[in-house]
């Protein structure tokens, strides 16, 4: 549904996006992660045909973003980084105006507008000027605008930014509900928990280049390095320093826990359990600590920085 091949954009000699290759199939959600200025918004702007690629190509529902720009735009629903609402319009007029640009039939448009306003809890404010809307309300209305024509491809730039936790949860649920066999979604976000919760695939970009791509679990596995193990036991004296042997490194310990890392947990863990029992520890649990996506992300970005400048 969404495919980019060597997609690149140059601004005044600087490559904002450089050779981006991504594929998002129907029913999938891809999260684009990256620091500010990484090229996420430029990528979205190229996919919505606002910017022309300097190199490479991209297809939305099989339509070429260069030569079939109007078709591409009619297939795509976009939540822009800046929601861009007209302050002197009211919500009803706003949705009607955008619906007309997509040539939606009048009755259908009214029905759809009402549905979306009601879904996002904006029905009571439909006749209020948008200048009087709160940030969260504006974001919800902008999302309603993106969904107005029931697009097959959704490009959402920071969909929950500036929202209170309840509204953000509503938007996340909406995105989950929008996942269907006929729809592909790309989300640009800084919220790693959100990306982990929603996305099937995560693409981390930095300085316009794709540095890592995969499912959240794949990425964690790829970047987790040595396995970290947490052992819990009945409380022991603080003075006692556990001995783990040569094949594990003790990272941290307390009266009722210890954390260590090892390269080969399957082989080393039974040996360590044995050693700890011998030292008088009553172990009741042993679990592997998963890296959070945040750690994976930071590691990926750091690695890339190291590769480049280190």
């Amino acid at each position: 549904m969404i495919e980019t091949v060597d997609l690149s954009k140059e601004f005044n000699g600087v490559w904002a996006v450089d050779g981006l290759n991504i594929q998002v199939a129907a029913g999938e959600i891809l999260a684009l992660l990256g620091p500010n200025g990484a090229g996420k918004t430029t990528t979205i702007r190229m996919l919505t045909t606002i910017l022309t690629p300097s190199r490479g190509e991209a297809f939305i529902m099989g339509c070429d973003i260069r030569s079939q720009s109007e078709q591409v735009r009619s297939h795509v629903g976009v939540l822009t980084e800046q929601h861009g609402l007209y302050p002197r319009m009211v919500a009803r007029e706003y949705l009607e105006f955008f619906g007309q640009t997509y040539k939606l039939e009048r009755n259908k448009l009214q029905k759809r507008s009402e549905e979306l306003l009601s879904y996002f809890g904006l029905s009571d404010d439909r006749e209020k000027r948008l200048g009087q809307y709160s940030k969260g309300m504006r974001q919800k209305l902008a999302l309603a605008r993106a969904l107005l024509h029931d697009p097959a491809v959704l490009l959402l730039d920071e969909p929950t930014s500036a929202m209170d936790p309840a509204s953000a949860r509503l938007v996340r649920n909406t995105i989950q509900n929008l996942r269907s066999a006929e729809r592909a979604i790309i989300i640009c976000t800084h919220n790693l928990a959100e990306a982990e919760e929603l996305a099937d695939q995560i693409a981390i970009i930095r300085q316009g280049r794709l540095i890592l791509q995969g499912s959240p679990s794949e990425l964690k596995r790829q970047l987790s390095g040595k396995a970290q193990i947490m052992a819990r036991f009945w409380a022991q004296s603080e003075d006692q320093l556990p001995y783990l042997g040569e094949e594990a490194i003790l990272l941290e310990h307390g009266t009722d826990f210890l954390r260590y890392e090892t390269e080969d947990p399957e082989r080393v863990n039974p040996l360590i359990i044995e050693k700890l029992i011998q030292q008088g520890y009553h172990i009741y649990s042993l679990e592997r600590i998963e890296n959070s996506l945040e750690e994976v992300y930071l590691k990926a970005v750091e690695n890339e920085t190291g590769d480049q400048y280190g």
């Binding site: 919505t48 606002i50 109007e70 078709q71 735009r73 009619s74 795509v76 976009v78 822009t80 980084e81 800046q82 929601h83 861009g84 609402l85 007209y86 955008f98 640009t101 997509y102 040539k103 902008a142 605008r145």
Partner: peptide, 9 residues
């Protein structure tokens, strides 16, 4: 405000 407009057909 022009960006959403530019995203329309």
């Amino acid at each position: 405000t022009i960006e959403p407009l530019l995203c329309t057909p």
